[in-house]
Design a binder for these strands. Structure first.
Lengths: 106, 106
DNA sequence: GCATTTGTGAAAAACCTGTAAACGGCGGTA
DNA sequence: TACCGCCGTTTACAGGTTTTTCACAAATGC
């Protein structure tokens, strides 16, 4: 493995925060900065339910304002792009009233 | 291979940092010092997304000041010259919000 | 069923990029 | 010195992309 490369696989998905990249089967997903930040946050905490507060704070740097839906909007966009590249896998699970969970396994 | 020659091809493009030269089909491009420095930096890191900070630091020796657009301006000039010599190839890709990537392949 | 929460398309706003052009400095030349 | 051409730097603005916000549909939970 090349020096300096930090990467890990969740099935066919690879996330490389240092390189600002996420790959599926080696092909880069074209994610915006926010989408990638969100994916990195989720992917860094597999199997763990992250609240909207945690996600917003991690991605936007501040806790969400009341009635802020931006986390949901970006989860939706991320699901769309992941789903296009990996039609058969469900990676992001919703926990009603709480937040979201990333689980490469199920 | 001749002693001291360091060169490599990306398709029809050849870059020879030691000789301060870049060639297309053996014909030298007429690049300014900055343009060549930028090309060498990009070309030395193929497939990798380089941030504006990295590019500026590599070419200008210091991180960019806020709102510095010089990297963009030089990418534009470099694209123009590369495009004139290689009209059919796209070599430098933009990554919105991050920087640029040199990919001889795609 | 009803209230609440989530999913998502679409418009508006904010932000970022591409590029021409202006400007100044430098070296060469007459 | 005056002029010229070239390069590097900076600025401005058009155009493009992303982010934010909004509205409503769908889903969930009681």
């Amino acid at each position: 493995m090349a020096v300096g490369s930090t990467s890990d696989k969740a099935g066919r998905l690879e996330v490389r925060p240092e390189e600002h990249a996420a790959l599926v089967d080696g092909r880069p997903l074209s994610l915006t900065v926010r989408e990638l930040q969100l994916l990195v946050t989720l992917w860094s905490n597999p199997q763990r339910i992250l609240t909207r507060e945690e996600l917003h704070t991690s991605v936007w740097g501040t806790p969400p304002r009341r009635d802020d839906r931006s986390v949901d909007v970006y989860v939706s966009r991320l699901r769309a792009k992941l789903g296009a590249a990996l039609p058969d896998q469900k990676l992001i699970y919703t926990h009603n009233g709480i937040g979201y969970r990333f689980s490469p396994d199920g």
